[in-house]
Design a protein around this nucleic acid. Structure first.
Lengths: 189, 189
DNA sequence: GTCTATAGGTGGATAGAC
DNA sequence: GTCTATCCACCTATAGAC
């Protein structure tokens, strides 16, 4: 097993920094110190911070979608899929991180255009998957809800992101779990 | 009516900046430019940025609690109180702002200790008021929910903050309204 | 209270040697 | 690919005149 290449290691460290401190809350100096290289080396891999940011979101979405495919492969029950979906958020929070794109949503006003677009692309993909699960659950009567699946998907994402953000400020996992459980329970038939 | 004093005008401008760009997304130079004074003048009123941040949260909480008292004075119906509570968020969002403390929750990892404490104080006060409304609604059977009022209050705050944050990224008020309506409807008896 | 001037630090970014 | 050295813009903050 080769060591992960430098670009990937940079992304790993930058990802954690954005998730804990925000895109405006870290600098190349932070990454350089953590990797024991100079700032100049980092600019070889990612010329501008905006490049780093965009690549960060793209990789995050790719990994997230892979996790969703993993859920699809592991279970066919709609309620169980939603539980595992919420469990992904829970794992991120347990690591004291915020969702990358939830964090960027707060900083939206200061982001380069490309990052704004990539961020929305992430939420769109997210909600498309949820709409599929919700439609399936409604069809086989394992889920019940009023309104469109798209509206419910938006509510779910918003509720989980918001609960995550606040629970992190209280360093209280239980707070997140209780909200997640309540939210999923509201879809029980 | 005297013009608002300088400290208040600084707070007004800083408040909007934090709500749109985050605490790490603006500088004294931004305020100075907007007020047509020098940065040095600002330091006379708020020696350090951390002082400004803390006073910002304290004033925000005071104003928010006053708005909640206004709701209590205007109506005695629990469901109507919740609708007006959500309408406050909606008004903030319509102005292209995020909730001040929702924004700070994202930046939590980088905030001075005093600001962290003040921020949680805001959410605590917020939830205390909601718990009162929820208890009243349960008692007079105008609201129905399972679990404790405290859990529901936390879910409400999280759902509204999260929906707000994401809707702002899409510049889509409808997105927020639909989530808020759904969330309140889930408490109907 | 507000100004000019400035200190001392950090930000992102580049040139050019190795 | 990584380094040293450096640029310049910007940051928070202070001293001292007015």
């Amino acid at each position: 097993m080769a060591a992960p290449d430098t670009s990937q290691r940079i992304l790993d460290i930058a990802e954690r920094l954005v998730q804990t401190r925000g895109f405006n809350g870290f600098s190349y100096a932070d990454i350089a110190q953590s990797m024991k290289v100079t700032k100049a080396s980092l600019h070889y891999h990612f010329p501008a911070k905006a490049d780093l940011g965009a690549r960060l979101i793209q990789r995050y979405e790719r990994n997230f979608l892979a996790a969703l495919q993993g859920i699809d492969a592991a279970t066919s029950s709609a309620p169980e899929k939603l539980r595992r979906y919420a469990a992904i958020y829970e794992d991120v929070l347990r690591d004291n991180r915020m969702c990358l794109c939830g964090m960027l949503a707060a900083e939206f006003g200061t982001l380069p255009k490309a990052m704004k677009d990539d961020m929305r692309h992430y939420f769109d993909a997210n909600e498309r998957w949820l709409v599929g699960v919700l439609a399936q659950g409604k069809k086989d009567k394992t889920l019940r809800f009023s309104g469109s699946a798209a509206e419910v998907a938006q509510s779910l994402v918003g509720a989980l992101e918001g609960a995550m953000m606040i629970a992190r400020s209280y360093a209280d996992m239980g707070r997140f779990k209780s909200v997640a459980d309540r939210t999923l329970a509201s879809l029980a038939p």
